[in-house]
């Protein structure tokens, strides 16, 4: 049995671009099918509720809104040692939730072996279910990035018919 992998969309879909991680994860899930050992999950804004979910996977690909200082709609991938910096520099609105979860899992010796963040810099964070057109436009590229990250982990995603 291959190592279980989790693709986790994070963000609040009620706050426009804040939900870009969830929207990208949904777009990926709609367009690509993955083998059984890959879970594609809408994590929303949840915190401690996700401990069990993350603990049951060896690799985590978090898809999230990030603040890197780059212009809105900029995309980024952080891997390995770059990920703690993402937490330390507080680039993500959800960073405390996710970093707390990962720290808690380290205390329980159940942290994932690898954590990758696929991120997008948001433009508007007002109340609303619709994303900015500029952010909507980069969703396909984020989906491609998720496919590429899975490929790095040896997983071939297949386009859905």
């Amino acid at each position: 049995m291959p190592m279980p992998i989790l693709v986790l969309g994070l963000g609040n879909i009620l706050l426009m671009d804040e939900g870009v991680g969830v929207r990208a994860m949904e777009a990926f899930d709609a367009a690509w099918s993955v083998p059984d050992h890959v879970s594609v999950v809408d994590g929303g804004t949840c915190g401690m509720d996700m401990l069990d979910l993350i603990a049951s996977h060896k690799h985590l690909i978090a898809v999230d809104a990030v603040k890197t200082g780059a212009p809105p709609a900029s995309l980024t991938v952080l891997r390995g040692d770059e990920v703690p910096a993402y937490f330390k520099g507080k680039l993500s609105p959800h960073q405390l939730g996710l970093s707390d979860l990962l720290a808690s899992l380290r205390l329980q010796d159940e942290a994932p072996e690898s954590v990758t963040v696929v991120g997008c810099v948001p433009m508007a964070l007002g109340t609303g279910l619709i994303m900015s057109p500029e952010i909507e436009a980069v969703i396909p590229r984020m989906v491609t990035m998720i496919v590429e990250e899975l490929a790095r982990l040896g997983v071939t995603a297949t386009p859905r018919p």
Binding site: G44, C46, S104, L107
Partner: peptide, 24 residues
Amino acid sequence: YLQALDYQRRMNKVVAILGSKTPH
């Protein structure tokens, strides 16, 4: 504190089983 990490997760499993999924 360390032990509680484990017990709170067991409790949340009940929500997950009945709610079909957590989070949400």
